[in-house]
Amino acid sequence: MTTVRTPPPPRLPVRDRAAGTSANGGVSPMLSRLADERATGVLIREHGTLYLADGQVVHAESPSTPGLDVLLAARGVLDAEAWREAVAAAGARRRVGRFLVDHGRIAEGALELCHLGALYDAAYFVLGPSGSPTRFRYGAAHWLGPVHPVPVAALERETVRRRELLHRIWPDPATDTAPLLRSGLPAGPSVPLRQEAVLGRVDGVRTAADVSVALGRPAFHTLVDLRRLAAAGLVGAVPAPQPPPLPGVLTQPSADPDVALLRRLRDALEAL
């Protein structure tokens, strides 16, 4: 995959394929190139950002999933006050993660587990199909600082594996993004508690991302649970509203649409 270079600004956008996989197996050719050149900075895509340090991914954020702060605040591990204190003390040095561990706010293992979970989770959405150009800002670093860097290749492999996992559970992606609706079938005792918690937040308005924030749970976990619930016939997506029919001659119903189309074509040609 080659990138066309132009003198900045403006830089030509690198548009990733909708299917998300390029010839070399990566999900983003630009990301692979940045890993090869051991770049440091932030990759900005339509559904979020990836922070790189020396070509490894150190942090990821996406509006589709709760961030580390939300996940850790949900059960009261770290409240907003603790985050504010840590960011004020160590944010400028980009060492907030280290500060939290050194000051006994959270165990190192717990921070690593939560951070890695959140990183892979956000990256799944960031590396999803994107309709807008990818940009990279060299030199930018996140205030959290490195906690447990992840190689780009591992992140890309995991992202592809996650897509396949969802597809295997239930092939319809509608529940990933649309507002969710219960089917009305009784849940029954076979629904595990974790899925029951998701089911309890489904109200015809919330999306998977909303449910994840409400539960303080990584969004990919919610996607998995929703696909299982959809496979069990308990949850579906609210159907998108049908666009109103266009007024006018062109949309007049006909018993045979092909005949109607040919007649209109003939009329138009004769009128020339």
Binding site: L113, P218, H221
Partner: peptide, 10 residues
């Protein structure tokens, strides 16, 4: 199984 103080399945 690891019990965490945040929502997880580790």
């Amino acid at each position: 199984f690891v019990r965490t103080t945040f929502d997880s399945s580790v």
